[in-house]
Design a protein around this nucleic acid. Structure first.
Length: 333
RNA sequence: CGCGGGGUAGAGCAAUUGGCAGCUCGUCGGGCUCAUAACCCGAAGGUUAGUGGUUCGAGUCCACUCCCCGCAA
């Protein structure tokens, strides 16, 4: 076995989120020399405003890699540091910030980016969620040469992937799958790229589409949508930004926020035993014959597999109904 | 010191002014049934997160500690 380890492959890795972890890990295992890891600064976040470190930073710490956390990527001092390290290649993977052209051009082999979609489709920050939200049966991974526009550069290598179980897959599963495949594709592509055997080809910009940044409000469930739409919303938007609705209890005059963690379509659950009572108003909570929690939707109903009332832990819909039987027959908003 | 909810049987929840710790589900045993996630009968299962305090008496009131979670960011 010949191991390609040399100082010629000095790489700076830009990454922040979970998606980038398998990619960085594979680079390390394949003996690439990571001379620095650039990740977003620790943020005061969460309960009590404790400092949070990114998954990539944790990994860099574990492997003793040099860590850079610039507040501003365009900062002249930061760019100077990068130049002094004289990298041969920058790899960007869910870093979360726009990288200025000046940095892109530093390494001899430029800066490449891994994007979990078949570019030019689904440019932007949420290609994975969007694929699930749209019920796509296939997606892909693109490795591209970065330019100054978002996910716009020429394609180095891409791969089309079927989404198995596209009717039930959740965001986390698709993310993990694409992350593993991204790592594979990168490792296969990197030697050729570094040997300059690949000529990037321009994207067809006419076919470009863009994904939006999801905000909390996108997680609000409207029960006057179809079961299928709601199910896709729940599968796509958990854990972030999460999907939720409200239960207004008229007796106690309280409103409880309910996070809907996991749903299932009736036909998946094998609905022949299900209590199908027609004309239930959208949002009505009821119990199926097999004691599952269900909520009426525009066209039918949806099974609530997991739910989390505010201040409580995640529980099954069945447990929820055991503890809060008074909610049966009420309408959620 | 950002705001807030919570810890009671294996799970989810109750418990009035402090007064025998209950409900639904699950588990185990039995019955009914062609059959069942349905129904009937019965049983097991608790140091009420911990420490100290008030009291004739504390799940409940007071103080402190530990743990879990929602919002916001």
């Amino acid at each position: 076995m010949t191991v390609q380890k040399s100082t010629k492959n000095k790489i700076i890795f830009f990454g922040t989120s979970d998606f980038a972890v398998p990619v960085l890990k594979t680079l390390i295992k394949n003996q690439y020399e990571i001379i620095a890891v650039v990740t977003q600064p620790d943020r005061e976040a969460g309960r009590g405003y404790e400092k949070n470190t990114s998954p990539i930073k944790e990994m860099a710490l574990k492997y003793g890699l040099k860590i850079l956390q610039p507040e501003r990527v365009k900062d002249a001092e930061f760019i100077k540091i990068l130049k002094e390290m004289s990298p041969e290649l920058n790899i960007v993977c869910s870093y979360g910030k726009i990288i200025p052209e000046e940095i892109i051009e530093i390494p001899k082999h430029k800066t490449i980016n891994i994007h979990p979609s078949l570019l030019p489709k689904y440019r932007g920050s949420s290609p994975i969620q969007t694929a699930i939200l749209n019920g796509d049966k296939e997606t892909g991974i693109t490795i591209m040469l970065m330019d100054k526009e978002m996910d716009h550069g020429p394609i180095i290598k891409n791969i089309k992937l079927k989404i198995k179980n596209y009717e039930t897959i959740i965001c986390q599963e698709l993310l993990e799958y694409l992350a593993e495949k991204s790592a594979d594709l990168l490792i296969k592509t990197l030697p050729d790229w570094l040997a300059e055997k690949i000529t990037p080809r321009e994207q067809n910009h006419n076919e470009a589409s863009f994904t939006k940044i999801f905000i909390k409000e996108n997680g609000k469930i409207y029960w006057n949508k179809t079961s299928d739409e709601i199910d896709r919303q729940v599968r796509a938007l958990n854990p972030w930004p999460g999907t939720f609705c409200f239960w207004h209890n008229h007796e106690t005059e309280t409103t409880t926020r309910l996070k809907i963690i996991k749903t299932e379509l009736p036909y998946i659950t094998s609905s022949d035993m299900i209590d199908i009572m027609p004309n239930k108003k959208e949002g009505t909570v009821f119990k199926t014959l097999s004691s599952l929690m269900a909520i009426a939707t525009l066209n039918d109903h949806i099974i609530i597999k997991e739910i989390q009332p505010e201040g409580k832990k995640i529980m099954t819909g069945k447990d929820f109904l055991n503890g809060y039987p008074e909610i049966i027959g009420k309408i959620l908003t």
